[in-house]
């Protein structure tokens, strides 16, 4: 069997592939390329967001996806070819990896083939009956979608007296900050910054959820603001300190009984949501800020697309027939 002998020889010779030595110079070049592509992919995503904000041109969604994925593919090829030395290696290893990506492709493609073609005959088969799930049997969800249950839980927290007083104070501070921001008095700008930071801190989710306020919010806030005022005073900014102290006095002057009656949970919720969404501007930069504006992508889903944001009010849209 002469041809088989050749085979055996062939794979005996094949060893020489494996002992390739990739020098640090080449490795550094590859690293530089990888870092460059990382910057590129981030910049690509940022520019898209910027263009949308500044010029108002919204690129189709696939531009973003294809751009990011192509760059990721190039990066991964670089890593595999040089860092993992596939380029110098026995080709069988490359073949194994290609097979694996092929199998992965089959997996994604055929799963998608089913899940994306459900509404072909009857439109109503494509979407879930209740967007976000039925919540049936989920502890604490009370047969609602999880997002809805989280909202309900949070509103219950907002209805508690301690939290409510805390947020009334926060609103007062925010009002003072807004007033200071619009005033042209001396030191108003500094005072506005201090007050806004204080209000933001108070309305942060951490303050409400993670460290729930204790009783006597009013006194705590007044003490904090006065401390801030003192700090400003020691820095020699007496005008600003006076504005902050005035804010502290106005917080002290809140009639809680009356305020509780007039300040609804819904209003508080909306105000906190605005802070949370606005917060991303500062925390997460411009890139993600628009992420919260719920722009429905053009008609991709049937039921889910529009039922989702208002599920709490509309009784789950299409779902009402099949579920209680």
């Amino acid at each position: 069997m002469s041809h088989s002998a050749q085979h055996a020889d062939a794979h005996d010779h094949g060893e020489s592939h494996s002992h390739a030595i990739v020098g640090p110079g080449l490795l550094r070049t590859v690293l530089a390329f990888l870092l460059f592509f990382t910057v590129l992919t981030v910049a690509f995503a940022q520019i898209e967001v910027y263009v949308e904000h500044a010029v108002g041109i919204r690129l189709p969604w696939w531009v973003n996806v294809i751009g990011a994925m192509s760059i990721a593919t190039v990066k991964s090829v670089l890593v595999m070819a040089y860092f993992m030395q596939l380029r110098y290696d026995n080709p069988i290893n490359t073949l194994a990896m290609l097979f694996c990506f092929f199998a992965l492709g089959l997996f994604l493609m055929f799963t998608g083939l089913d899940l994306f073609s459900r509404g072909m005959v009857y439109d109503f088969k494509s979407g879930p009956v209740i967007a976000g799930g039925t919540g049936a049997g989920v502890p604490g969800a009370n047969n609602q979608p999880l997002t809805q249950a989280a909202k309900v839980r949070f509103k219950e927290r907002l209805a508690e007296n301690n939290t409510r007083e805390w947020l009334i104070c926060a609103a007062k501070v925010e009002d003072a900050a807004n007033a200071a921001a619009h005033s042209k008095d001396a030191g108003a700008a500094e005072a506005a910054a201090v007050l806004a930071a204080q209000a933001h801190h108070m309305m942060d989710l951490h303050a409400v959820m993670v460290h729930p306020p204790e009783a006597g919010a009013q006194a705590v806030v007044v003490r904090d603001l006065e401390a801030q005022a003192n700090t400003l005073r020691t820095k020699g900014n007496a005008a600003a300190a006076e504005l902050v102290a005035a804010a502290a006095r106005s917080v002290q002057g809140i009639d809680m009984a009356q305020a509780r009656a007039s300040y609804s949970v819904e209003a508080m919720f909306d105000r906190l949501a605005a802070v949370a969404h606005g917060g991303h501007h500062e925390d997460h930069g411009a890139a993600s800020s628009s992420g919260n504006a719920s722009r429905a992508r053009t008609g991709v889903t049937g039921v889910t697309g529009h039922a989702a944001p208002h599920a709490n009010e509309s009784g789950h849209g299409h779902g009402s027939e099949a579920t209680p």
Binding site: T111, D114, A131, G133, A136, L146
Partner: peptide, 10 residues
């Protein structure tokens, strides 16, 4: 789990 928004056919 469909109760949590997922998909049993998946």
């Amino acid at each position: 789990d469909p109760a949590r928004g997922g998909d049993p056919v998946l």
